[in-house]
Amino acid sequence: MTMTPAQIESYVDAAAAALELPLSPAHRPGVLRYFALAADFAALIEAVPLSMSAESAVHFSPVEPVEKEA
């Protein structure tokens, strides 16, 4: 489910208030934009069907990207 801009603003405002996190007016547009991006990523992942036997990874090890040669 994709969140509407109004839902994103409400969520960010509520989360900031709950965490007693001051949100500068100058930073607000960027926070809203990033949260919208993260919400879209979450919606994509939630759309992937999983079987009842699917298990989460025990350990995640990130790797550095490899530069492609031209």
Rank of each mutant, 00 (worst) to 15 (best):
A16E: 00
A6G: 12
P49A: 09
F35M: 08
P49G: 05
E20R: 13
S53Q: 14
D13A: 14
V58T: 15
M3F: 10
D40F: 04
E67A: 13
H59G: 06
A18L: 09
E55N: 12
A36D: 15
L37P: 00
E55V: 12
M1H: 07
P29Q: 05
A15F: 00
M52L: 02
P65D: 05
H27K: 02
F60S: 10
P62L: 13
A39M: 11
R28W: 00
P62Q: 12
D13K: 04
A14H: 03
A43I: 10
M1I: 08
S51L: 06
Y34I: 10
T2E: 15
V58A: 14
L32H: 00
H59W: 12
A14S: 04
V66H: 04
P49I: 03
P29S: 08
H59E: 15
M3G: 05
A16P: 03
P62Y: 14
A42R: 12
R28C: 00
V66T: 10
E69H: 01
A26Y: 01
S10M: 08
E55R: 14
E67G: 03
S56Y: 12
A16G: 05
M1P: 09
Y34E: 09
V66I: 10
S61V: 15
A42F: 10
M1F: 08
A36M: 07
P25H: 00
R33D: 13
E20H: 14
L32R: 01
L50T: 12
A38G: 01
V63Y: 09
S53M: 05
Q7M: 09
E64I: 06
F60A: 09
P62N: 14
E67L: 12
P29Y: 04
L19D: 03
S24W: 00
E64C: 08
R33I: 06
H59C: 11
D40I: 05
E20M: 11
A26S: 11
I8E: 11
P62C: 11
S56P: 13
A14V: 01
E9D: 11
F41W: 03
A14Q: 06
S56T: 14
A39S: 15
R28D: 00
E69M: 01
H27C: 03
A54P: 02
E55A: 12
V63E: 13
D13N: 10
A17S: 07
I8R: 04
A14E: 05
I45G: 04
E46T: 09
H59K: 15
Y34T: 11
P49S: 06
A39F: 07
A70M: 00
